[in-house]
Design a binder for these strands. Sequence first.
DNA 1: GACAATATTGCAACCGGTTGCAAAATTTTT
DNA 2: AAAAATTTTGCAACCGGTTGCAATATTGTC
Lengths: 333, 333
Amino acid sequence: MAVTLKEVAELAGVSRSAVSRTYTDGASVSDKTRKKVEKAARELGYRPSLIARSLATNRTKLIGLIANNFQNPIFLEVFDLYTRALQKRGLRPLIVNLTDETDPEHSVQMLRQYNVDGVIVATSTLRPYFAKAFKDANMPVVHAFGRAEVGTDVHVVGIDNQACGKMAAETLLLHGYEKIAFLGGPESATSTQDRAMGFLGHLRDQGVVPVDVRYADAYGYQAGRDAMREVLKVEGVEAVFCGDDLICMGAMDETRQKGFRVPDDIGFIGFNDMAMAQWQAYNLTTVRQPTHDIILSSIDLVATLVEEPEKSLELRIFPCEVVERGTLRPFSQ
Amino acid sequence: MAVTLKEVAELAGVSRSAVSRTYTDGASVSDKTRKKVEKAARELGYRPSLIARSLATNRTKLIGLIANNFQNPIFLEVFDLYTRALQKRGLRPLIVNLTDETDPEHSVQMLRQYNVDGVIVATSTLRPYFAKAFKDANMPVVHAFGRAEVGTDVHVVGIDNQACGKMAAETLLLHGYEKIAFLGGPESATSTQDRAMGFLGHLRDQGVVPVDVRYADAYGYQAGRDAMREVLKVEGVEAVFCGDDLICMGAMDETRQKGFRVPDDIGFIGFNDMAMAQWQAYNLTTVRQPTHDIILSSIDLVATLVEEPEKSLELRIFPCEVVERGTLRPFSQ
DNA sequence: GACAATATTGCAACCGGTTGCAAAATTTTT
DNA sequence: AAAAATTTTGCAACCGGTTGCAATATTGTC
């Protein structure tokens, strides 16, 4: 069916090796034969089979991309960047949807069977041991958006969630808020734990006692609404730090539905700065996570690891920043 | 590095064929040898290499999934369903992000090189000839969310956009609206063209002249806002049919920012019924597209085509329905 | 228990490439 | 112009599986 090396070789009157070398960079071919080969290839419409090449070289150019939150639009932004950036490097993502799974084993087998060159675990809700499962199966692995935890041995690219939590606290205090609530993502998510620690820690240091500390069931809209319903039962909440923009939007909708105004009655600060944070209906003040940097860097790192599997462990941490929009009352109280 | 057939065969004391047959369904192996093989495989942690198998069988279990809109959260829902449903069938999506490309050629080459078993073009903004490029390269292809156009020869799974446009018109008229505007997606998108035709056609049939007909630059939020800004310049618009929920949300935000109330001053009906349509801030009345059915059906179809490439052309059309929420004024005017 | 029918097994070729090695061709040096 | 150094080329083995075919083993029949 498809045109093969052999046919090109015959038409060009050279050996199969010559054809192969024409399409392998770094290989030694004279200009003359290269020309002959290229002409023949053009005539026949030849494209080397990546499958066959993979078998011989043990490289597939496939990168496993593990994700487990397909409810949060920020992941569409993440996929967009990943697919394009990988594409640009001649790599392809092999997406694994972990929604239905809790055990890494199945995914590990699957990616091993496809012989992926590397794995990027792109989620902030899984503990590093999950990423470690891939490492144990001998694949280069990078945990993007992961927790920089000591004691694990997987490369991590992400942010300092604790520092970011602190930034959120500072921002609220700066705006003069005193009755502050924390509305985190799922309590089991490492990102939430760290943000909580940074946020609540700073409040404590400043002598502020949070009026409520609560966790949503998921990094999702409805989860945010449901949790906010509880927060609103606390008398006099002035401001809420939501551990995720989507949660924040849910929380805001619930707040407004209950008749409160944002930011006049209750202020909000979110997390991520997803595209939707700019929407007029929300216009969210939020902590921006440098998604772009994290993604590019994680691709870079995994590509390096493919060449250099024993590279010493790296933690790449990018800084966040607060983006002020319209969900906190003005400074001058 | 990895455990191979050969090693398992040696440990089990059988031929390589026996091992291969153990993992090929439909092949003939006695219980006795199967047991021996499985034991050996377990001890060694053997997994057959899909790459090697692909080379021999000419099947990769990879399905190219072509998409070109990574701005619209509905696509995250689409990806979620695709990845999971394919996964469940032992298939894997190989995602192609067309954002940067206009010419199918590059993607065709790429998917050919990976020798994908089939291709699903999941977009409503591309003309069928785009999908045809894959067919011409001899891959089974299904155009999901595509236009059921006569004269092309690619299988299509989708909806009758024209009928859906008509439904939107009927709904608005039923609600007693008279000064009606159309705010479609990009004019070049076949889905928009068809929705416009159905919508405007029905208005015409009912003797209603639309007060504005306008197209957003993309199926996106900002595009919706920008276009709505123009629509609002028309005196006395009462209701708007937006060709997409996301556009609709942008349009509503613009409307509200300009001081109009929804639905009291201006009513909206969207298209798709994405998850966010239920959000409190929008609570969109919209035409629901049966995404789920379309996706499952397109996977089914492409899987069938893999076995039966010459299967006669199919157009699978699923019905839509109007979901009434809160963006149109009550019936009794 | 002999014979036919059926099921299982191993051999060897093949899928479409890559690559180490030695031979052949070309270029450089003297 | 011959010798040495360098580049290019083809051979053949290999990557890790599958599969048609013939040989062998098992099961069923009378």
